Deep mutational scan, measured.
Amino acid sequence: HMTFVALYDYVASGETDLSFKKGERLQIVNNTEGDWWLAHSLTTGRTGYIPSNYVAPSD
């Protein structure tokens, strides 16, 4: 899985979304859904959809 880092805080707007904090590391499970990607937080262990423009590839 690709690892990304959150650029901003995001508060989930629905049950399927994943809240995260700036700097949180996320594994992308599925990024074929356009602007919303299914991600797994390496910080909280939770999985949900995130806005793709809130994250950047982590080196």
Rank of each mutant, 00 (worst) to 15 (best):
E15K: 11
V11L: 11
S58P: 10
L38G: 01
G48E: 01
A56N: 07
N31W: 14
T32C: 08
P51S: 03
H1L: 15
Y54G: 06
S41K: 02
P51F: 04
T3K: 05
R46M: 15
R25L: 12
K22V: 08
G34W: 09
T3P: 06
W37Y: 06
D17W: 08
V11Q: 13
S52Q: 07
F4N: 01
I28W: 02
S41I: 02
N30L: 10
Y10N: 03
T43Q: 08
G45F: 07
Q27E: 14
P51I: 03
A12Q: 06
Y54D: 01
Y8S: 07
I50C: 02
P57F: 09
S13V: 12
M2G: 12
H40N: 07
V29N: 06
N53K: 13
V55M: 07
L38K: 05
N31T: 14
I28S: 05
S58H: 15
G45I: 01
Y10E: 00
I50W: 00
N30W: 09
V5S: 05
Y49G: 02
L7N: 04
Y10P: 00
L18V: 06
D59W: 13
Y10D: 00
M2T: 13
H40T: 15
L7Y: 03
L7G: 02
E15C: 06
T3V: 15
I50H: 00
G45T: 03
D35F: 14
T16L: 14
A6R: 00
E15A: 08
A6E: 00
G14E: 10
L7P: 02
L18M: 15
D35R: 09
H1T: 12
D17G: 14
V55F: 07
G23R: 01
V55S: 03
L42N: 06
G45P: 00
D59G: 13
Q27P: 01
Y10V: 02
T44M: 03
T47A: 07
G14T: 12
V5H: 05
M2K: 13
A6W: 00
L26V: 05
L26Y: 01
R46Y: 10
E24V: 01
W37A: 03
T16E: 12
V5P: 01
G45V: 01
K22M: 08
T47S: 10
P51Y: 05
L26Q: 00
L18C: 03
P57W: 10
T16V: 08
G23E: 03
K22R: 11
Y49P: 01
L7W: 03
V5W: 06
R25C: 07
T16A: 09
N31E: 09
G14M: 11
A56T: 15
T16H: 13
F20G: 00
V5F: 08
L7E: 04
V5T: 12
T47V: 12
M2D: 12
T43G: 06
G48H: 03
A12S: 11
Y10F: 08
W37T: 03
T43P: 03
E33T: 15
L42R: 04
S19L: 06
D17S: 09
Y8R: 11
G34T: 10
G34E: 13
G34A: 14
N30F: 08
S13G: 09
D35M: 13
N53F: 09
A6T: 06
D35Y: 12
D17E: 15
S52Y: 08
Y49W: 15
S13Y: 11
R25Y: 14
A6C: 05
Y54A: 14
H40Y: 13
W37Q: 04
S52I: 06
A6K: 00
L42F: 08
N31M: 14
S13R: 12
L42V: 08
V55K: 02
L7V: 07
Y10W: 06
L18A: 05
S52A: 12
T32V: 10
G23P: 00
M2S: 13
D17V: 08
Q27M: 13
Q27V: 15
D9W: 01
S41D: 04
N30V: 11
A39I: 04
I50L: 04
G48I: 01
A6D: 00
G34C: 07
V11N: 11
E33D: 14
H40E: 09
N31D: 11
F20E: 00
F4G: 03
A56I: 14
K21F: 09
H1W: 14
F20Y: 01
V29C: 08
T47W: 12
V11T: 14
E33I: 10
D9M: 02
S58D: 14
P51L: 06
E33F: 10
I50P: 00
R25A: 09
F4W: 13
S52D: 02
A56Q: 11
I50G: 00
Q27C: 07
A39P: 00
S41W: 00
Y54Q: 05
F20N: 00
K21E: 09
S58G: 10
S41T: 02
E15H: 11
L26S: 00
T3M: 14
G34I: 10
F4I: 05
Y10C: 03
A39S: 02
V5E: 06
T43I: 13
R46L: 14
G45E: 05
E24N: 02
E33P: 09
W37G: 00
E15Y: 10
W37V: 09
N53Q: 10
T16S: 14
S41L: 03
Y10T: 01
V5D: 04
L38W: 11
S41H: 12
E24K: 00
F20L: 08
T32H: 10
N53E: 11
T44D: 05
W37C: 04
V55R: 02
L26R: 00
V55I: 09
K21Q: 09
V5N: 04
R46S: 08
Y49D: 02
H40F: 14
E24A: 01
D9C: 04
N53W: 12
D17P: 03
Y49E: 04
N30S: 14
P51N: 07
N31P: 11
A56D: 06
F4T: 04
R46Q: 13
R25I: 14
W37S: 03
G48F: 04
D9E: 07
L42Q: 07
N31F: 11
S41Y: 00
K22H: 05
V55P: 02
M2Q: 09
S52L: 04
E24S: 01
T16C: 09
S41N: 09
K21S: 12
L26E: 00
L26M: 10
A12V: 04
R46E: 11
T43L: 12
K21W: 06
N30A: 11
F20W: 01
L26K: 00
A6Y: 00
A12G: 13
L26T: 00
D9T: 07
T3N: 08
Y10H: 06
S52N: 07
T47D: 07
V11D: 10
P57Y: 09
Y54F: 13
V11I: 14
I28C: 04
D17I: 08
T16W: 15
G14K: 14
G45S: 05
P51G: 02
T44S: 14
L38D: 01
L42H: 07
E24G: 01
N31Q: 14
F20H: 01
N30I: 09
W37K: 04
G45M: 06
T3D: 08
H1P: 15
I28R: 06
E24T: 02
Q27Y: 15
D17N: 08
N31V: 13
S19D: 07
T3E: 14
W37R: 02
G23D: 05
V55D: 02
E15N: 11
W36H: 06
V55W: 04
L26A: 00
A56V: 14
G14F: 09
G45H: 11
V55Y: 04
I50V: 13
A12M: 04
L18D: 01
D9N: 07
D59M: 12
N30E: 10
D17K: 12
A12F: 03
Y8I: 06
R46D: 09
S58R: 04
G34Y: 08
T44Q: 05
D35N: 13
S41F: 01
Y49C: 07
W36L: 08
M2Y: 12
T32S: 13
Y8E: 08
T3R: 05
I28L: 07
G45Q: 06
T44Y: 03
H40A: 10
N30R: 08
G34M: 10
T43R: 09
T47I: 10
G14S: 15
M2E: 10
F4L: 07
L7M: 09
F20I: 11
Y8K: 10
S58N: 10
R25W: 14
Y49Q: 05
A12P: 05
W36C: 05
G45K: 06
D9S: 07
L38S: 02
L42Y: 09
